[in-house]
Design a protein around this nucleic acid. Structure first.
Lengths: 241, 241
DNA sequence: CGAACGCTTGAATCGACTCAAGCCCTGTGG
DNA sequence: CCACAGGGCTTGAGTCGATTCAAGCGTTCG
């Protein structure tokens, strides 16, 4: 799929786009780039001059820790803008890497700001995109701080599945999600041993299974219950299911 | 101080404002409101039609948990826009309450969007404000997920002190911060007993003391070291100290 | 003066982490 | 084609630390 199609599709999740907005998006020139697994796309401290949209696969944002470890902050799939913030914040306070092989498309900031100044409503849509992003971060704070381990993991699964479903990336009850248990632990703030034990526990609930890079949702309502998941914070206009 | 002065002062932290931008800000009509301690200003699920700037005291954002408890997400002092996101996200996914007695000033969204459409650069400044907000949330994820208890608490103290200093709210080495230990625990994801024990531990370092609503910083470099604090994520143009 | 709230502290419990060993699968080189 | 090395996953045992529970103190406010 073309980058502009993906962008329009994504922004329509939460914003109304006029045909002029869409036409403006079509004028943007995207440059495609393929990424190998674990490849860094942007590093902490970089001052990028372009913004990136995910075209396929997954990309993640993370903080580098003093210890050398990572704190994963968010996961992004086709349609997401993992560095939309860089448009107005010069220096990256976090890094972005590929999770499994992925592809992205980048636009020059200059082009984007020109488009925004021509179509302010397009700017508002992208702004809204960054605000949803912030909302997801808030939920992550609560998730990692206030919920028990099984609920925490279930909540992440719920969110990723729900977002992927909204963007049409779910195949039946399966979602390809090539994260390792180590990365899962670095996202949820748990040691790898605990990640695995929690996974075993969740399997026993017969609501989800995550193994070898595939998330299988067997019982959505029960999974939501375990994860205390309420999708309101994702601010999607059309709430699937 | 007038609301427009406070707003200009705050936005100048990270954005360049032209005299036209400032003039536009001065046209906004703010309504002042006094808040008692613990009073809710905005509730989860609300659909506010105005934005709020803190005038004095502290305000906090929080998620209500199923258990009835709270997860505090961020603390805001005079100059901050604790609900800037509500401009473009209709439904509040979190609540805002006063910490101690506080005052806020509100503007109608309509007025604000009108001002933004007239002065796009003003919109960019507010947008940047929301992006810094998101950056602070990201740091909170890392703080609450990856750092040990003393570092976690020290980091929060560093952030609040640094931000307050930048806005001129610090008096010598003292910062008025009327949060209870319970609230501190609900922000940092620790039980109250642990909060107190960690406080004792930090006192022993002779770098900080927090008691009866006052934060005293005795040794800033050591406090930063304990909290692994690097202010880059606050994206301030002029970095004090 | 009594009640309520917030802070403090100790003791016991529980859960997560670390450490360690072993497994499976994959990819590589002999 | 098989052996081996490495990475990721799995699991158990022991340790450590945070939580819970509980009691007591101080201050504030009605």
């Amino acid at each position: 799929m073309d980058a502009d199609r993906i962008v329009v599709n994504k922004l329509k999740e939460h914003s109304r786009l006029s045909s002029d907005d869409i036409a403006e998006i079509k004028t943007l020139s995207f440059t495609r780039r393929e990424l190998a697994g674990h490849e860094d796309l942007i590093r902490q401290g970089d001052e990028p001059d372009k913004s990136v949209v995910v075209m396929s696969g997954w990309v993640a944002r993370y903080h580098l820790l003093r210890s050398g470890g990572r704190q994963y902050l968010s996961f992004h799939m086709a349609g997401d803008w993992p560095d939309s913030q860089a448009l107005f914040l010069d220096r990256m306070d976090h890094a972005v890497c590929a999770i499994g092989s992925a592809a992205v498309a980048s636009v020059q900031h200059k082009e984007l700001t020109r488009a925004i100044s021509r179509r302010p409503s397009l700017g508002f849509a992208i702004w809204r995109e960054t605000l949803v992003d912030a909302s997801i971060f808030r939920e992550a704070i609560t998730n990692n701080s206030a919920r028990g381990k099984p609920a925490r993991m279930a909540h992440l699964f719920c969110e990723l599945f729900y977002r992927a479903k909204a963007l049409g990336h779910v195949d039946g009850n399966l979602l390809q999600l090539p994260v390792s248990l180590i990365q899962l632990g670095e996202a949820l703030g748990m040691a790898i041993a605990t990640v695995n034990r929690t996974l075993v526990e969740l399997r026993a609930s017969r609501a989800v299974d995550f193994r070898s890079g595939t998330l299988a949702v067997y019982h959505w309502p029960r999974l939501c219950a375990i994860g205390e998941f309420d999708p309101g914070y994702l601010h999607l206009k059309s709430l699937p299911r």
